[in-house]
């Protein structure tokens, strides 16, 4: 059963639907949805962007994290209708054609993933952090990611990956004061 105009299978005619228009990874997308459809399911089943994972479906794990107008939300805990007129970024929106986003490069370089299930959510929480605070301390990274659970890595390399990305995104010309300097002994 599908609930979306882009997948032309209809639900019963007696079920009221609403039209939603979303800017999804910068592209305008529209769908006719039943109000109870969750944003995570619109993204995964409707728009076929399966990078957004649903791990717990009970608002606990953060695997379904997407950016909603730039801020991280659990897409399993929002109705798709609520996204009407808003901007949504999923993990598929991070890379620019062939060029990985620095956060993705960081996860690759620092081995920030094992099974990869939590990774999309981790990367989007990390993006929200770095957009707001380009030079975070290790503590600030841990804090920002504290709503995303990982069952594999023990978090150490995830934190390293985000600090790696922060460094890269600030660029070689950025001030020399690194996060480590600021939190270091003293």
């Amino acid at each position: 059963m599908s609930l979306f105009e882009e997948v032309p299978v209809s639900i019963g005619n007696d079920v009221p639907r609403r039209r939603v228009e979303i800017s999804l990874n910068g592209e305008r997308r529209a769908a006719e949805v039943e109000p109870r459809l969750l944003l995570a399911h619109l993204i995964r089943n409707g728009f076929r962007l399966t990078g957004t994972h649903t791990g717990c479906d009970t608002t606990n794990c953060g695997a379904c994290t997407v950016l909603f107008d730039g801020a991280p939300v659990k897409s399993c805990t929002m109705f798709a209708v609520q996204a009407d007129g808003h901007e949504v970024t999923t993990v598929e929106g991070l890379a620019q054609s062939e060029q990985l986003h620095p956060i993705q490069e960081g996860f690759k370089d620092e081995h920030g993933l094992q099974c990869g299930f939590c990774t999309p959510g981790m990367m989007l929480s990390a993006k929200a952090l770095l957009d707001e605070n380009p030079n975070p301390t290790e503590d600030e990274v841990r804090w920002a990611l504290s709503g995303n659970l990982c069952r594999c890595t023990g978090y150490q390399n995830i934190v390293k990956a985000v600090l790696w990305a922060a460094d890269k995104m600030r660029g070689p010309d950025a001030d020399t004061g690194t996060a480590a300097d600021e939190t270091g002994a003293g």
Binding site: G62, P72, V73, K74, T77, S125, A144, L145, G147
Partner: peptide, 12 residues
Amino acid sequence: APLVADPIVRTR
């Protein structure tokens, strides 16, 4: 404020 739920829940 920082102790309520987790950072993602706090967005909403």
